[in-house]
Amino acid sequence: MAQFKDLKPSSQRFIRNYPFPELVDSTLHRLHKPLNKCRVALITTAGLHLKADKPFNSSFLASDCSYRALPCWARLCDMDISHNSGDFDRRGIQEDLNVVYPIDRLVELVQQGRLGSIASMHYSYMGSLPRTGDLRKYTAPEVAQLATQDAVDLAILTPV
């Protein structure tokens, strides 16, 4: 199990001293339809992007809050991984994309009738962000708007 003590000492020190934003309880939006009518999107912080797209800035201090769209047809052979944190063990995703981005499982669930449909676009961010202002102010609301336009009902978020 991943635990705080599993982090590198430098990462432990960083998190211990990190000024987390003071946040109120989040909004909680209840599903208003059964899962077999829902459209589902994946959002990962693994730094995935299409090979044709601009890579993320992998420098921790750059705090790249941008995102990349991943079309529903994209699989690992179409992607690169920008995320290079020493705490992110890439061996799992290199063997099976679904360890981080369970797109094949979602396809199966739609085929089984458990889910309604899969979003046409999914999204990826670089998770190692020491500064989150631009994420909270711009890029997270932008993806929320894009997902709304794609009629997404439910999003599954996967950190690494």
Partner: peptide
């Protein structure tokens, strides 16, 4: 910090009406 990023994105989605 991935877990912070994922949580913050989730909050923005919920505010936009996406579970």
């Amino acid at each position: 910090m991935c877990n912070q990023t994922a949580g913050l994105i989730a909050r923005a989605l919920e505010e936009a009406g996406i579970s």
